[in-house]
Write a protein that binds this DNA or RNA. Structure first.
Lengths: 232, 232
DNA sequence: GATGAATTATATGTATACATATTGACATCA
DNA sequence: TGATGTCAATATGTATACATATAATTCATC
């Protein structure tokens, strides 16, 4: 039997990652305690752990809010994700076993039908699986763990925005290039293909955020020395 | 005034990273509570956060122990560190401002004296600073945060072992190559130099661990499919 | 009517008390 | 002798109670 705190973490994390709990939402201990019919103790521990994971922001004596990412931070996270994921793709290409490759190939084929059917919801599920399989393919728990943690944090934010990605076909095609490179055990090609894929999505996400922020509130001046994103 | 839990985290983390608390040490809430003259509550919260950070292992109903890294995990972490650090060096080369570069250069020069004087203790301090400056030079908080977290976890482990690095001169020379590349804004060279540096250290750390484990206890068979470390 | 100080209210931080699961010892039995 | 099961001891998990800092409200004053 898992501990109550662990259960709460799982539920809240899913809600944050899934977008039910929007970034900026306040998380009050008392409210959560009542909701889960438990005392504040396990709730506090859950919040603390989620804070350490970066899913929520935890300010002393002010409680927690679902991590609301500024434009500068988002740019950082997207860049890190892009680099990490490309690296993982490269390692996966070099290390995946035959059965792992087969699994990846099948997954990609299954997705094809969803693209034609424009089934966005199911597509996103398989999309997550796709990246997870590649993570596992690195045979490096540290790297894959870091990437997945980062993806979770970003996911929380992506899902809070409207439609995630209209043109499924383009994404699918880019995935195809990654799959092909991995099946051919071509690390460099896998790296390049994945980097290209993520970089394109990143600019889209950033653009959309910039637009939506511009309408409502002035952008927070968080990091004056702007990064030269993807200048490589 | 920081919270008690935060204070405890800082103290314990330092002890773990510094090697005072050796990997495998049990961390009992009651003992810690008595030591810090506080109740178990803040201690528990501290432990939980450190668990999320990976500094300690936290098993439900069994309490926490300072993270004791197996050979397979260590290999994973070292590989991740190597790749991340090389990436950061590359970005730093591309993005560091003039003053940041100057700072890095000065730091490297200061270290030179310590190498000649064989002052290991002080060298390690500046060594950490050296890597921190490069982290900052990426202008990417996400990446640098991940790398620093990883370095902390590894540091806990490195310091538990005997002498960290005998041949300071070699290390210093390798650092020199990194500095040179960064000052020249040569991303590729910085990447290669840092990767070379970390890869060499990694094999040394792994070898030493393998030896020490072989003497005492049989290696845990944790990940049957061994990674092809640094096969790129 | 607006501003600001003082007071009340509330949420978080910490301490204590209780519930429950695990560990170890000891006894019993095959 | 060794294995197993019961019981006591103890550590963790959870709940409740108290302390304190922040927020919200009130009320007085300008």
């Amino acid at each position: 039997m898992p501990t109550i705190a662990a259960t709460i973490i799982q539920i809240l994390a899913e809600e944050i990652i899934g977008g039910t709990l929007a970034p900026g939402s306040k998380l009050e201990e008392k409210v959560l305690a009542e909701r889960f019919q438990v005392s504040r103790t396990p709730v506090r521990e859950a919040l603390r752990e989620m804070g350490a994971r970066g899913l929520i922001e935890l300010i002393p004596r002010h409680g927690g809010v679902v991590a609301n990412i500024g434009i500068a931070e988002l740019a950082d996270m997207l860049e890190a994700e892009c680099e990490l994921e490309a690296l993982c793709a490269q390692l996966a290409a070099q290390r995946m076993s035959v059965v792992e490759k087969k699994q990846l190939e099948r997954l990609h084929e299954q997705t094809e039908a969803l693209v034609k059917g424009q089934d966005e919801g199911e597509y996103l599920t398989l999309n997550k699986k796709f990246h997870d399989v590649i993570c596992a393919g690195t045979h490096n728990q540290t790297l894959s763990g870091m990437l997945r943690g980062l993806r979770d944090r970003l996911s929380a934010f992506r899902n809070a925005q409207a439609g995630t990605e209209r043109r499924l076909a383009v994404s699918h095609e880019e995935h195809g290039a990654v799959v092909e490179a991995i099946l051919a055990s071509d690390g460099a090609a896998a790296y390049a293909a994945m980097r290209n894929h993520d970089a394109r999505l990143s600019t889209k996400v950033l653009d959309r955020l910039r637009d939506s922020r511009h309408e409502r509130t002035a952008p927070r001046t968080e990091r004056p020395a702007a990064a030269h994103l993807h200048s490589t």
